[in-house]
Design a protein around this nucleic acid. Structure first.
Lengths: 106, 106
DNA sequence: CTAAGACTTCGATAATGTTGGAAACATGGA
DNA sequence: TCCATGTTTCCAACATTATCGAAGTCTTAG
């Protein structure tokens, strides 16, 4: 993963509404939710939600699939895993024995 | 973890320089680095670095300890773990069997 | 006590992100 | 075809953040 990709993903999540949208989608797993339902659940005006969903999609955190008049959104869990791997890359110089010597290791 | 805390942490990491600082600190584990060394390694002017380090510290992602004239910074790995837990909280409604049915589960 | 070094705060400027109403754009049903 | 519904684009006001020079604080050495 490149630094720019990580920054985009983190920036996408670093906003109250988008974070709420993402978490809601995570909770709905592979079933996902349509834009309208998301807006209803979170009380967001349609243009605002659309703006945020686009942002999340561009960051690769959610996927969008057209279903007739609806658009179904799903969380991309693998994106989060990749992000965490990037953040903790080469943790403690790669030597996990040196990682937090006086604390429990993960 | 509260939503505000998560947003703060994500916003702190959602910036090229701060992300680089954090990753550098992660790689140096419990040993950490002084502000001067970080600035030298990343080529950041002192005021800019100070601004970013303060931001990271306020978000709980790094800790700062005064050592004489120096200030030693360390990454707070547990903050990342808490953040990930918050992001994936109640994933797929808590039923992991429903999580990505056609893909490998984590 | 003075000076030099490490780091932070101040302050001004520039750039970027957020919000939501109005209007436009699809899509499917009557 | 025409209408109702779901979603997006446009736009303008507003709010937040990034940058770094200059000046300030704090600490140790001489």
């Amino acid at each position: 993963m490149e630094s720019n990709t990580a920054v985009s993903a983190l920036a996408a999540l670093a906003q109250e509404s988008r974070l709420a949208v993402f978490r809601l989608l995570v909770q709905n797993g592979p079933i996902g939710l349509t834009a309208g339902v998301i807006g209803e659940q979170l009380g967001l005006p349609a243009p605002t939600l659309s703006f945020h969903l686009k942002n999340l999609a561009q960051a690769g955190l959610v996927s969008a699939v057209q279903e007739g008049r609806f658009v179904r959104y799903r969380a991309e869990i693998t994106a989060i895993h990749a992000l965490v791997a990037f953040l903790t890359e080469n943790c403690c110089g790669g030597d996990l024995n040196r990682c937090r010597p006086n604390e429990s290791n993960p």
